[in-house]
Amino acid sequence: MQGKVNILICDDNIAVHESISAYLQAENMEYESVSNGEEVLYKLEDQHFDLLILDIMLPGLFGTEVCRKIRLTSNVPIIMLSAKGEETDRILGLEIGADDYITKPFSPREVVTRVKTILKRTHYTFPSEDAILTLGEMKIDRNAFNIKINGSRMEFTPKEIELLIYFTINKNKVLSREQILNKVWGYDYFGDTRAVDNLIKRMRKKLPEKNLGFEIKSVYGMGYKMETST
């Protein structure tokens, strides 16, 4: 990873800021703290952050609405925090574009571990004989963690890139929603898989409509398949 990581923490509880920031400092990460959603949006317009830790229950704009607004213009990784432990809240966080979800009360060590896991995907180099994946007109650089289509770099979120890697490695295979959720998010979860459908819906909107050499197809009653043209 090049340079220091800069994290933005948004929570209206000062104890959360103090506990998480202490662990970030111990890992030599820089951070800034804000207490409401409006401040988050203002900060992201003015500065670069490598990751956002975002509470759901915020004064003014809820964290879910902040996340939706961010995803209109930015792919910054987002970890959502919530005092609610219901699975529906977790799925909602994933549906709107969050990269991870942590339920309060939590250990700040766990939060920082999740931060490091996501940053490894987006910053670290992963030596591999398959570092470059090619499918049709799409080229995925797993070391740089970026995607080019027809030579132009595309703006995808970390989760979207992980899903495209998973699809590419398993091209022409039908993958169930449960398999995708477990692989891309790391949850062994069988139930409401709307997060997968929403992620694919957002991803399809970003992909050019023609001459890709592949297509993400829905397979009724089963899941999805990355089908190649050749």
Results as ranks from 00 to 15, higher is better:
Tyr124Thr: 05
Leu133His: 10
His17Met: 09
Asn146Pro: 05
Glu155Pro: 08
Tyr189Arg: 10
Ser107His: 12
Tyr124Ile: 01
Leu133Asp: 09
Asp130Tyr: 11
Asp99Arg: 03
Gly223Tyr: 06
Leu41Ala: 11
Arg142Glu: 05
Glu209Thr: 14
Thr73Asn: 14
Ala131His: 13
Ile79Gly: 00
Glu18Gln: 13
Asn170Arg: 15
Glu87Ile: 15
Val112Asn: 08
Ile169Ser: 10
Val16Gln: 08
Lys205Ile: 06
Ile200Trp: 11
Thr125Met: 13
Ala15Cys: 10
Gly97His: 03
Pro105Tyr: 08
Phe106Asn: 03
Lys116Asn: 10
Ala22Lys: 15
Asn150Tyr: 00
Arg202Lys: 12
Thr228His: 01
Val34Gln: 10
Arg194Trp: 04
Ile102His: 09
Lys183Thr: 08
Gly93Gln: 00
Val16Leu: 06
Val184Gln: 12
Phe190Trp: 07
Glu178Ser: 13
Ile56Leu: 03
Val5Thr: 14
Glu39Arg: 12
Gly151Thr: 05
Gly136Asp: 03
Ile147His: 02
Lys148Asn: 07
Ile56Glu: 04
Gly223Arg: 10
Glu129His: 14
Gly223Met: 06
Leu175Phe: 06
Asp55Gln: 04
Gln179Tyr: 03
Glu32His: 10
Ile20Gly: 04
Ile7His: 03
Asn36Met: 09
Gln2Lys: 11
Leu163Ile: 07
